[in-house]
Design a protein around this nucleic acid. Structure first.
Lengths: 272, 272
DNA sequence: CGTCTAATTGAAGCATCTCAACATGCGTGG
DNA sequence: CCACGCATGTTGAGATGCTTCAATTAGACG
């Protein structure tokens, strides 16, 4: 595992591509605050407490495991920049991805109350993280009880996304599943200010998509061509653009409720 | 929706079948305590606080919705006796079940911090419930902070089960999926004392199983025959018996970790 | 300009689905 | 105690969405 600890909190990001990346040129705490405000309200005292939260910046290369199944970590990781995913391997070596993570997410938050981790977290791209000790989080919650509830809510939304994925993998066709995933990522990115005009950075390979949706890469490739041919999206070089957002939503049978996004500014306007 | 409110807390259960049912002839709070102790430790003060928790007993018939998608309930439901499931319907009318619930579960606990419910809960059999107002739970948490964490842990385990289901539906064959589900239900039932000798009450129809595992009833029927023919289980009249528990575990590629069961007495001895 | 990863294509196979009967069990009313 | 009705389970046969295998092509990078 190649984790490079950084001497200082020098976390300026290159800001490749869309203008939305500039939003992230803030301190780690600000990103966490923005994330939490996308799912609930924060009082000034809570914001202040969050700014005092102990965080250690870390960089990781692409395709490296950050958390491993069976481990018992004593800290959680806030994703600052890049993309992560949770996954498990099954008996015959097949991989199932169970979530994608974008800046503001804390994929291993469950380890705060689950002694043994039951999934792996790995980086899809080179990423910047902030490590927050469990003890620091618990101290924060002791001081600001409502914040504990907001983090709890965060994990509940996580679970709501799992439910929606179960529905997709269990009962929807490949075409609908892929369209749905794209809708989900666009709305989530938008909620933390990482999207402009239904265009998001999304550096997923077709293999990643296949492993997330329970499909083969070959089938993902062909279905992706169909979705493109239908004029719904452009998807290349790690960038997803919804050319026809209402059409994509419809194709993906996408109902945003389950994401429980609060922020008015963050929610996607209704189709048409 | 036929919900019959009961005048008093007369919740004696018929205790059909296995001797394990007698365990449930306790007050609702005792069941909740047993459930929580299966996933963590409780102090005497916490147990006392739980016994003071406001709960209203309710009975429901089989096949009735208890919570509906889109609703904003102000109370949660503790299942005392019977079986429930969470489900969603997709565009073409297909159903996907995303969890089964056994006594001690609180399937709508997420509504405590999620304003709009994103799933339905319905009864698989006639069931007895205890309704607990959100306000009562929040008051309990204010008094006993560690209890909040234990309930949080409860929802995290819920999510861990979702992850495992995603893996199953996404990457495992019908045979393995069904075997895995059976293992899961046996271990969960055992954790709350509702199983003896790898035999549990499990009144699922083949349609329920199909809708939970993303399969057709026809295929479930045929695969069930294979599993029976392999000498792993008996499954009839709402009862599941693991004739060959080690074999069933192996067939289901079942690793118990994700259930995060604590109680030593509740954990299933290793195979062989 | 080779090297590696990711995307693409063709062709054959099968796990699982759909449709459509038919069987079984069980509660209920007569 | 029997007859009906309904839910559930079972079976056969044909269809298909998706997989697997195996190349081939395209891009990114030093």
């Amino acid at each position: 595992m190649t984790i490079r600890f950084q001497a200082s909190a020098n976390l300026q990001h290159p800001g490749r591509g869309g203008g939305e990346a500039s939003h992230l040129s803030h301190a780690p705490a600000e990103l966490l605050i923005r994330k939490l405000e996308s799912i609930g309200a924060l009082s000034p005292a809570e914001r202040a407490a969050l700014r005092r939260l102990e965080m250690t910046p870390v960089s990781v290369d692409a395709h490296h495991d950050i958390v491993c199944e069976g481990a018992s970590p004593t800290a959680v990781t806030l994703l600052l920049h890049g993309f992560l995913c949770r996954y498990k391997l099954v008996a015959d070596g097949k991989r199932q991805i169970m979530s994608f993570h974008i800046p503001g997410d804390i994929p291993d938050l469950p380890t705060l109350f689950l002694d043994v981790t039951d999934f792996n977290v790995c980086s899809l791209t080179s990423s910047q993280l902030a490590v927050i000790p469990h003890s620091a989080l618990l101290a924060l919650f002791a001081e600001q009880r409502q914040l504990a509830y907001l983090f709890w809510r965060n994990t509940l939304i996580d679970a709501a996304v799992f439910r929606e994925w179960i529905v997709g993998i269990g009962r929807r066709s490949a075409f609908v599943r892929i369209a749905h995933l794209f809708c989900e990522m666009i709305v989530r990115m938008q909620a933390v200010g990482l999207s402009s005009n239904y265009s998001v950075e999304l550096p997923l390979t077709q293999t990643d998509i296949a492993d997330a949706l329970g499909l083969s890469t070959v089938h993902v490739n062909r279905t992706l061509q169909e979705i493109r041919a239908a004029g719904l999206i452009k998807f290349f070089r790690g960038r997803l653009i919804a050319i026809d957002w209402p059409g994509l939503r419809k194709a993906g049978e996408f109902e945003q409720v389950y994401l429980h996004v609060q922020k008015a500014a963050a929610s996607v306007p209704p189709a048409r």
